[in-house]
Design a protein around this nucleic acid. Structure first.
Lengths: 333, 333
DNA sequence: GATTTCCGAGCAATCGATTTCCGAACCTGG
DNA sequence: CCAGGTTCGGAAATCGATTGCTCGGAAATC
């Protein structure tokens, strides 16, 4: 591989000058600059990024820690981060943690060892330890979820309002015995969505019935078994609000399998959009999160933070959108 | 940040010894090794990866160039690569090219500049130029698609057989006027799938009718307009084989929108699985590709190639699986 | 007991670009 | 014409780990 020295020799200047021309940090005689540029072009020189990173003590990499790209929510989010990062000259290292603390810690270690410029993380739980990153001065933005301890930039959606919208929509469509399948207690998003559900009931003058609330794991199986439990226990239910996309699918599968008609017998609405939800049988009503925009926003915040490490932590909250489809059609009374 | 010298001082040995202990390249007195290990632990030392990369002239990064993680096909594939890479100690840099040659070239340049250990690429087209990578000795594996010029490791699916299976399935179900919506002519996958379709027709003793074959762009809109064109032109059609997931969705949308009953009036089968395809209205028949395994296989091949740059290029072909669902139910005659 | 062999530790060079520092050249105003 | 200031190029230090080479000392051999 060609080195900066080779270019310098070819252009008849010093390596320092080549570097200055290429990085534009300092003024260089235009004529020399032209010579350098043509030398670079002629030789096809490409600076060694690793050497540059070592010297600058900073890379152009971002680690993006999410639970699973397979989840359409994160897929689109990652795409947003990548597009945003590319704009600012960063590449994105994809880190699937599967909500696993050990995996998370492992990736944080990699980010640290490789001197990554920043980390965007959707923490597996509220107490995920990012102190090592903070200590090393690595820029961090949390996305979708917040951290209890540390004060860092965060990009969130208004979970409570979204859940409230979904529940209110069911209520307005005539459903009254609405179950809520939410996520684990230790996750802020799960709790916020539950609270939104409860708020909608309260606003409608309905008591909240604890037997209607289930905590599952944000996964397909979780939604399935929570739904199955509701049916098996004979809990009176005429609609379900599921707090994320996978659990919605799980619940729908359970209902379909057991021959429960949607929405005739049980109405369904889910948090998070699902690709092609309108092509489902029946079309699934959802509360769409602006996932791509979430990713873009996080990228912007991270880039800003890197440029200005001293600025106070920002907290962006984006709004959700209700997409009513057939699975929550107005109930014939 | 702590340096190797600090550890060396603390353990009362030289930096070289610390390095040797940590990398196990050479034998070190067990007692010294223990001292080094405890020094590392006590100080919380973490080697600087960038410095190591510079010296070793190799990083632990892989670039994965695909058109779009948003496409479920690539989502799952990337996940496979990531899992595989992690096993061998590599991290994955996600590069969405959107089938765009310029973007592709850009990412190749980044991979080169950052000295990445390897590149897994699903080339935007048969003539994508990877010569710079080859020249630099960077390990390359193509995935899903092949390159015309360069001989590199490749992981593929048996596109022809898959398409043949899909078409044969439609024929066996009683469909006779089967349209084929395939991808652009310059893409090997598109042509292979078309050939499989033709082979099935021939095997069944049916003539191939050029008006039934459409080349679209492998995107949703492409599938939609190809379908629309077929209907608008009044071509007699009783089934469609769409050569990838997005075009299948597009075709289905077009049919649904125009009130054409699936499968009563037109049967549908698509190449590539679609998440939760069984929940669609009607359940979509598909030819599933082993996407995750494709990613894992590519990871394995790349890791092998890095360890042994001289070995002859491998070519792995995985098989597809037919998943018949309602959209291709047997035709009532 | 002397010589050879072998092992392992440390010194120093190296990877390749960036950046500080210094001095030369040039400019400007008095 | 000179002092003071400015600009700009180049030499060399630096980033932090790895590794080739050297050499001391212990073990082995005669």
């Amino acid at each position: 591989m060609l080195k900066i020295q080779d270019v310098a020799r070819h252009a008849g200047v010093s390596a320092a000058t080549v570097s200055r021309v290429l990085n534009g940090r300092s003024t260089v005689n235009p004529e020399l600059a032209a010579r350098v540029h043509s030398a670079v072009r002629e030789l096809g020189y490409r600076p060694n990024g690793v050497a540059r990173n070592l010297r600058r003590r900073q890379t152009t990499l971002w680690a993006v820690l999410i639970s699973d790209v397979g989840n359409p929510f994160f897929t689109s989010l990652v795409r947003g981060v990548e597009d945003g990062g590319r704009q600012f000259g960063y590449s994105v290292v994809l880190c699937n943690t599967d909500e696993n603390r050990a995996r998370e810690a492992e990736y944080i270690a990699v980010a640290l060892a490789d001197n990554m410029a920043g980390v965007i993380i959707s923490p597996a739980d509220d107490s995920t330890d990012i102190s090592a990153l903070v200590a090393a001065g690595t820029a961090v933005v949390t996305i979708d979820r917040e951290l209890a301890e540390t004060e860092v930039d965060a990009v969130l959606v208004d979970n409570e309002k979204g859940a409230e919208m979904a529940t209110a929509h069911l209520l307005e469509s005539g459903y009254r015995r609405i179950a809520c399948i939410t996520g684990p207690r230790r996750m802020s998003t799960a709790m916020r969505r539950l609270r939104g559900y409860q708020r909608a009931l309260r606003a409608f003058g309905l008591p909240s019935d604890r037997s209607l609330v289930r905590h599952a794991d944000f996964r397909e199986e979780g939604g399935y078994s929570a739904m199955a439990a509701l049916l098996d226990e004979g809990v009176e239910v005429d609609a379900v609000f599921a707090a994320n996309n996978l659990m919605t699918v799980g619940a729908v599968e359970c209902l379909t399998e057991r021959g429960v008609a949607i929405p005739a017998q049980v109405g369904v609405i889910g948090f998070d959009d699902i690709p092609w939800a309108r092509l489902f049988r029946p079309g699934l009503s959802t509360v769409r999160q602006p996932t791509y925009e979430l990713g873009r926003a996080a990228a912007q915040l991270l880039a800003d933070r890197i440029d200005n490490p001293a600025k106070p932590a920002a907290r962006m909250v984006l709004q959700t959108e209700l997409h009513p489809r057939e699975s929550s059609s107005p109930r014939a009374c």
